[in-house]
Design a protein around this nucleic acid. Sequence first.
RNA 1: GGUCCGGUGGUGAAAUAGGUAUACACGCAGCACUUAAAAUGCUGUCCGCGAGAGCGGGUGUGGGUUCGAGUCCCACCCGGACCACCA
Length: 935
Amino acid sequence: MKSKILCDNHDYNPGQIEPYWQKAWQESAVYEPDLLVVKQPFYNLMMFPYPSAEGLHVGNMYAFCGSDIYGRFKRMQGYDVFEPIGLDGFGIHSENFALKIGQHPKNVIRRTEANFYRQLHAIGNAFDWSHRLETYDSNYYKWTQWIFIQLFKNGLAYRAKASVNWCPSCKTVLADEQVINKSKVKSQKSKVGTRVLPGDRQVCERCQSPVEKRELSQWFFKTTAYAQRLLDGLNKIDWSEKVKIAQRNWLGRSDGVLLKFSSDIERDSFIEVFTTRPDTIYGATFLALAPEHPSLPLIIDKSKGLLRQRIREYVDYSKNKSFEERRIKSKTGIKTNFHGVNPLSGEKVSIYIADYVLPSYGTGAIMGVPAHDQRDFEFAKEHGIEIIEVVSGGDISKEAFSGEGILVNSDKFNGLSSNTSIQRITQHIKSKHIGTTSVTWHLRDWIISRQRYWGSPIPIIYCQKCGDRGKSWFSTKEAKKFKILNLKFKIEMAGWYPVPEKDLPVELPYIKNFKPTGTGVSPLAQDPNFVKVKCPECGGEARRETDVSDTFLDSAWYFLRYPSIGMENGKWKMENFPWNPEITWKWLPVDMYIGGAEHSVLHLLYSRFLWKVFYDLGYFDFSAKSPKGQLGGSAKMPVSGWEEPFTKFRAHGLLISKGVKMSKSRGNIVTPDAYIEKYGADTLRCYLMFCGRFTQGGDFRDSGIEGMSRFLKRIWRLVQKNLKLRSFPSEKKIENLKLRGEAEYMMHKTIKRVTEDIESLDYNTAIAALMEWLNALEERAVGGSESAVGSRNKKNLQTTNYELVTREEVETLLLLLAPFAPHMTEELWQRLRAPINADKNQRISADANQQKSALWSIHQQPWPKFDPKLAESKKIVLVVEVNGRVRDKIEVDRGIDREEAEKLALKSNKVTKYLQNKRVKRVIFVPDKLINLVV
RNA sequence: GGUCCGGUGGUGAAAUAGGUAUACACGCAGCACUUAAAAUGCUGUCCGCGAGAGCGGGUGUGGGUUCGAGUCCCACCCGGACCACCA
């Protein structure tokens, strides 16, 4: 390592300092803990970016810096912090960007990768660059494919027909997250008076055409099998409450009953419905089936003449209807000639087909209770169906009453409250065997397939020959080791085989015309060399699956991969298993995860799902008996156990610009590069964190950053002058100076505030605390007050006021600021620590040996400690109120008792003026805060 | 329509087991330094009345609880985020 030459200029020059220390840190691996050896692992993770656009904007930097500050803080607290970084480069975002600029994704990604990593270096985060990963690297997606295969073999990945979002203009399937509400678009364009109305259009994010539905065969992951555990697990983890709520809502557990209405469609047939309101069953005056309901073919078959024709037309019409039409407010539907019988009232009710009934929720059929459900109410009005009130409390002539009330028109349940009757009726239904209690979820299975190019090819092979004979992987010898007992599943999967694991990865071929085809087939289908493959079972001609997997699959496990990268040891080799057992045991689950709230329900839910699958499949079983190998090193005992991947998660707020959200369409995206160039990364980092509370976001304005620049310059000057003006021969003495009084209190108070504020991510107030302390230190330096420090040479004091700031204070200030401004504090720290050349009375550069010593950097120093007693002032301002109004403030000793406080309060003229000789009826005394005299 | 979060000076924002509202910073004004400007430093800066001490008002609106409410409760208005015909 070359000798470090410390910059000796007086001026703060971030352009010179920052690259210098970034290089030095990397050369001596300050941020690269030995994952196998270190004792106190702390996995500090931030959501990795998708390099889709023109580069990182300050919103991204905001998130990364916030995470980095926490990691640096933890490192100084003695943890061995691992803070990896990578790129989520596969997926529609990146592909769309490539389409937009008319270049191939494989070429674009090389440029964006370089640009992203350049920006990520420039911001000065404590990344461990030796563990980076890119999801589009075949060394990575090999294992994404492997994961797909494990799910397939365990019956958790299956193929089925499903309606998906289809954009007729872009001619492609869209992910759910690419379908947006038109009203949103409007309100973005003109802020004036647009309101979000119900039933707004669902449009394509890119071209704004209305999105349609299409029935396509898709691969699914069975997330619904884990619904209950995904819900239960939320209680074990320390996450932002709003994210937990969002997940609970998305999982959407509804408790209700499944109820059978006997029907005359066929002999002994029935229509089953789900309801959460069994108390309203007596008011069910019709049944409505989704057009996709399984009994539709039979109904059409058994209907006659014109009606048959009309039902068929209606079903076709609604199935192909765009979302826009189907979401329209009017409730369309058609009456069949069939009937059901209300199992409680015994009334005969008509069966309708109505497309406001969703096929994918509940049973795809509902009992219509117009009096107590608004949608049913509208439908009944339109179709002249009887409306019977069974819960009193509303006015059902105007609208449905969905609240709770007292039951009427409900036979023997009349007079009961909704709550009681729900229990009683449910009991009744169960005892009569006409229904059961049931749980329905909003969560649906995860559609994995994407008919796009830029993704990980789904590693599955289809063999027509085997399929015709009803054979599949599930009829192979290997499959017997797995417990897939569902016969129907085996039949449905006929012809499908996973790619043999030894053949992974299935490389994404270079396809010149990577544009979405519009035929519902991925562009990969164009490449015969890719498609043509031998059947792994019969050896005959077969074809590959040409869809790629959803990019959310790539990002659902990346954090498991990071620590293992480049860590081949013992029995574990990268090509054997995706994560090193020893390392994984030691480093996972993630200790702190920071990311955007926009991923509350997608990424964070998918990650939890996969993790639970891995757990069930024994991939975290690293015990000696496990086939995965023996365990070594010291393991951490995760607080949340091994069933959750992220022990702690905090959502950062949204950084807005000039009052509104940053977006391309508004043209208010701020890129960090120019700011780093002008002010330096440290200033930008501090300013970003000062904009507002980290978990709530902030407003980025150019004017504000100037103030932060001033703050850092003042720190620089304080330390620099303190260093320069200090006479070296007496340095020893200065070091021994003891703080006392106000100065001591200020220091301990500031350490306390900064420590607590960083822990709770309130970085803005942590910086404010540092500013307040700096103000106090400067005041002392300029004012020359002697009282703050121990005995001093008075003569010396006149010329060297900056010496009034002690070494201890200067060092503490730098340590507290280090997570926020890592480069500048490092430079000043090294200057303070540089040895002195006695002859020249100058500091000399630290040499290579010194900096090679294990803990040379400021970022490796222990975090300052505070004494809780010293962090409290000796004196406090006691507020004196009369009848709850502030009348005086008196300075008293901390810990003053009630009697003493009252005595002092009554001495104050300002107070007695308001008492006017009236008798004090009551005295409220809040220790060390206030005394309130009530007259 | 649902769920959640927020609404505090000219601006970004502090302060919640109920206890000094506006910390910290920006901006602005005045002053110092300068030939001048920049930079820097100092002083002032919630609003109204007042020369001043001081008095009164004030945390989206209207009520309530309390000795005391930015904070808790009820109703409403506005903004944002996420979800959305979920039975």
